[in-house]
Structures are given as C-alpha cells and as structure tokens.
C-alpha cells in the first residue's frame, strides 16, 4: 500500500500538457469542487506506517533514490517538520519554502485535482528556480484519518490549518478538521514546543477552533507579542488564495495560534 504517485483520476491529463515547460500550471485546468467529504471512505493509497512514506519521491534533492533503502531508515536524516493540512492550492507552502529553505514541509490535500495542481506548481517552481523549492511537496490524503500514517511521534514542529471548511450544521461539526479528538492526534505528531496555526474568516469557526485548543490539555495559547514577532503569522493571511480573497473583500480573519506543551498531571 505504498504511496503511488500516479494518482488516478482527473487532473493528470491536464497537468501533462504543461510538463517540462517549467511554466506554472493554470488553475482553470484544475477546477475542483470546493468541498470534500472527509468522512467518506477513500480510495487512494495510504502508507501503512511513517516508515513507508517514500521521501525520495517528494524531496528528490534531499533523498536521491539511488542511494538505496539505507538512507530512509536513518534517524538522523532530515524529516518533514511542517505540515499544512488542507493546503489547497499551496500558497502557504510556496511562501514558507523560501522562508525556511532547509526545512522539509508537506501539504496535505483531499481533493485530487487540487493536489495535482500543487504538484505541477512545485515542479514548475523547481524548474524555473534551480536550487529552490526542493523542500516542499504535497500528498493527496485525508489527514483527519491518516495523520499517524505519515508522521512519527513528535516529528512536526509546525502544523497549519488555514481557512478550513466551516461545516456550519451541528450535525456536521464532526467533519471539522479541528476537534478535541483530532487535536489528540495532532499533539501526538507534534514535538513539545511546536506551534499549531489556525486561521479562518468565519467567526463561528474561529471561536470553535480557539475553544477546542483552549480546552485541550496539550496546548497553550501563545502570548500576543510573541505572535507578532513570528514571521510565519503574516503569511497566514497573505500567502494563501483564501487569505487574499478575504483581504480583497475586506473581510475579517480569526486566528488561534497555540503551542504544544507536555501533559501536566497534578
């Protein structure tokens, strides 16, 4: 059940037209539905465990595949440290890539056409900027179900949840990507001191995400001045397509930025 790159289904064909040109893919070839049901059983390959994530496919410059298997099991080898959950069209990844040029990061996206777009976008960026953008990649997966299949305990230092689906109906609240139960899993893959970034333009969802994080014993709020000094925070609303759309329309955004802390049992 290894991750195969030939993601079946649409998108692939459109991407093929532009391959090799080093040109950025055009979004109109990758139109996708805005929402995807995270509860449905998925039909894409999932790695059985983090050991099976093939890093050479994602970061060929860091993991040349001809060096064989030995390198993969090497604990000292650099690992993915940032995860952008629901990365959409990949704006944040592209922004972060140059800000943290030595950090491996991955975007996770459920919609296959969008994932194809991000793949093409990264390949085009690598082709036109040699030596850059080798540290970002994308995978099509359902991160609400398979986070522990991709990351080991305490592997990640940053997780991003930017403009997630609001799922307004109470019946559908369990489809929200931030919930008390899912925060357990995010806390598991994050190192102590790691930071979780959430932002939305939906006030109700903003409150929900903040209250989940406040209630969760493994996260604590980060003081305002520290947030202001964090260069990543600016990217939350400026780097992504959703963020730009909100800014264009003069909308308000709601952030919740929390730190992973160890469990305190009195």
């Amino acid at each position: 059940m290894k991750r195969g790159d030939g993601a079946s289904g649409g998108g692939g064909g459109a991407g093929g037209q532009q391959k090799g040109a080093g040109k950025l893919p055009r979004k109109r070839f990758y139109r996708a539905r805005a929402h995807s049901n995270p509860l449905s059983d998925s039909h894409f390959p999932v790695p059985i465990s983090p050991d099976e994530v093939d890093l050479s496919q994602h970061y060929p410059r860091y993991f040349p595949s001809d060096e064989g298997e030995g390198r993969q099991g090497d604990a000292a080898a650099s690992r993915i440290r940032f995860a952008d959950v629901g990365c959409g069209f990949g704006g944040l990844l592209v922004g972060l890539s140059t800000l943290f040029p030595d950090t491996l990061m991955i975007g996770m996206e459920l919609r296959d056409k969008v994932t194809e777009y991000v793949k093409e976008r990264i390949l085009a960026l690598r082709a036109s900027n040699p030596g850059q953008y080798d540290n970002i990649s994308v995978v099509r997966t359902n991160s609400m179900k398979y986070i522990p299949n991709y990351f080991r305990k305490a592997q990640l230092s940053k997780m991003f949840f930017l403009f997630p689906d609001p799922h307004f109906k109470e019946k559908n609240h369990r489809r929200r990507v931030i919930s008390m139960q899912l925060l357990d899993e995010y806390a598991y893959v994050m190192e102590v001191g790691g930071i979780i970034y959430t932002i939305t333009d939906v006030e109700e969802l903003g409150e929900w995400m903040r209250s989940c994080l406040e209630k969760h014993p493994l996260f604590e709020a980060i003081p305002e001045e520290e947030i202001k000094a964090d260069p990543v925070v600016k990217l939350l609303s400026t780097a992504t397509e959703e963020g730009q759309k909100v800014a264009r329309n003069g909308g308000q955004t709601f952030q919740a930025i929390f730190r992973r802390i160890p469990l305190q049992e009195e």
Binding site: S49, N149, D184, E185, Y188, L263, E265
Partner: peptide, 22 residues
C-alpha cells in the same frame, strides 16, 4: 493512549500507534 489519573477530563496523550496491519 495514556489512561490519566483523572480520566473524566479526557485521555488526550497518545503514547503510540501500532501500525502494520494491512
């Protein structure tokens, strides 16, 4: 999952995942 001393507040700390079954 770590079963806490005061479990009514939730069992949030995951010790590990045992992954291997296909």
């Amino acid at each position: 999952t770590l079963f806490p001393k005061k479990p009514l507040r939730g069992a949030n700390e995951i010790q590990s995942f045992c992954l291997g079954h296909t």
